[in-house]
């Protein structure tokens, strides 16, 4: 694999970690990592308005596009890795897709009054963050410390 590609993959992983960190900061700042915080954010209170259907859609649309792309691009770099790592990445990517979908969908269920989905939202977000971090760290490891199997351009 060309050296420049390995750098590009490593930088992608660093940006990915920054993206996940900024998402965590936003979650902590806007919602808070607690059941009460999530309920307040989506359902509102006497003084604070809850999330409107438009507000939910406004947040869901870019995330549906971006999360799918982010997971696919991050995981597809593992095509260059050994077979065992590839299989592990497949399970990791499937778990990430599921967690991302649940994370987005949970907001709608909470706003429509399904209180138990607050726990799903919290669990899905934490799973998404931890597995996303794991994928990015795995990319960094394979880009720098473990030789990725060279896949030459056909000459």
């Amino acid at each position: 694999m060309q050296r420049a590609y390995r750098f590009a993959i490593a930088y992608f992983a660093l940006f990915g970690l920054l993206l996940l960190a900024s998402a965590a900061a936003l979650f902590a700042s806007k919602i808070g990592f607690s059941v009460q915080g999530i309920e307040l954010y989506y359902l509102g209170s006497d003084t604070i308005p809850g999330k409107s259907p438009y507000g939910l859609l406004e947040s869901a649309v870019p995330h549906l596009g971006a999360m799918g792309l982010f997971i696919m691009v991050g995981a597809h770099f593992m095509l260059f890795a050994p077979t065992r790592a590839k299989r592990r990445t497949l399970y990791l990517a499937l778990a990430l897709f599921a967690a991302a979908l649940l994370d987005i969908a949970a907001g709608y269920f909470i706003a429509s009054g399904a209180a138990s989905w607050v726990w799903v939202k919290l669990a899905a977000y934490i799973t998404l963050s931890l597995l996303g971090t794991l994928l990015m760290l795995q990319l960094l490891y394979y880009a720098f410390w473990h030789s990725l199997s060279p896949r030459q351009h056909p000459r």
């Binding site: 060309q2 420049a4 590609y5 750098f7 590009a8 930088y11 992608f12 940006f15 990915g16 920054l18 993206l19 900024s22 998402a23 900061a25 936003l26 700042s29 806007k30 870019p62 971006a66 792309l69 982010f70 691009v73």
Partner: peptide, 28 residues
């Protein structure tokens, strides 16, 4: 507000990483 800054950074990071990754792969 802090929310404004965090939201700006969050979307900027995504576009940066996708743009630079694609561009650098083509350029390389």
């Amino acid at each position: 507000s802090e929310h404004f800054v965090l939201e700006l950074l969050h979307s900027d990071i995504f576009f940066m990483m996708m743009t630079l990754l694609t561009l650098s792969a083509i350029y390389a």
